[in-house]
Design a protein around this nucleic acid. Sequence first.
DNA 1: AATAAGCATTCAAATATTATAATATTATAT
DNA 2: ATATAATATTATAATATTTGAATGCTTATT
Lengths: 125, 125
Amino acid sequence: MTDALQNFKAEFFKALAHPARIKIIENLRDAEKSVTELQALLGMDQSGVSQQLGILRAKGLIVARKNGTSVFYSIKDPLLFELLDKVRTIFNNHLIDTKDMLGQLENGPQPVTFAAVSSFGRELP
Amino acid sequence: MTDALQNFKAEFFKALAHPARIKIIENLRDAEKSVTELQALLGMDQSGVSQQLGILRAKGLIVARKNGTSVFYSIKDPLLFELLDKVRTIFNNHLIDTKDMLGQLENGPQPVTFAAVSSFGRELP
DNA sequence: AATAAGCATTCAAATATTATAATATTATAT
DNA sequence: ATATAATATTATAATATTTGAATGCTTATT
């Protein structure tokens, strides 16, 4: 794989690495939204919303359409939603794993393995 | 969508938001690798590799298997690769868009080189 | 022209991440 | 026991991101 593609991926994921930006994108699933609309939907102040939109726009994930004094944002590539859906599936898999682990706790002490290093989703002790 | 899922997505993408970590994951596509092997493949020093592995491990993207004095890492959920492949597709779509845009310039059709899209990720003018 | 609405940008403080070097741990071999 | 190889952790300086307040820019209305 080329360096350009690797860097693209890293930059792309960096654009998604913030709860507010995830929320914005999720709110653009069905239709474009103005900044004011998003502001209300996210419960954030105007400056914050505009800043996060600016980041998503700079990274090319969303596009802006200006109408009068309003700016309407929409997702550039709908594949983005498939991406988010895939992460949801991974999240569900994660839940199942956790459930399995919890189930095994009830079966009494288990042999101690290197699993101590592979704790899921939380910081190591 | 629940807050938990939104935060999971953001944390998940944060784990992927670094070129070195992308490289690590790509190198785990076909088989597990030891830290030393990854160190050689990435051209990074031991500490750096181990730290990035630690982040991926803490976020639950990879799992560790200890064998003697070596630790072998592998991807936990193969869906991760589908995720990366989808980003590659988005990258390709992005290239096509850029090519179209260049073609519409007044100067007439221009040779499209990869450098033409190297501006991805920088701030807007 | 003056005002207001809707957004974007700028700035600085707070926080988080990264890179580098040094040190610690663990398992194996001598 | 000591040494060595492989990996992990810690400390810290450098850098980047986030947050919140303030300011500036367009566009529409009066």
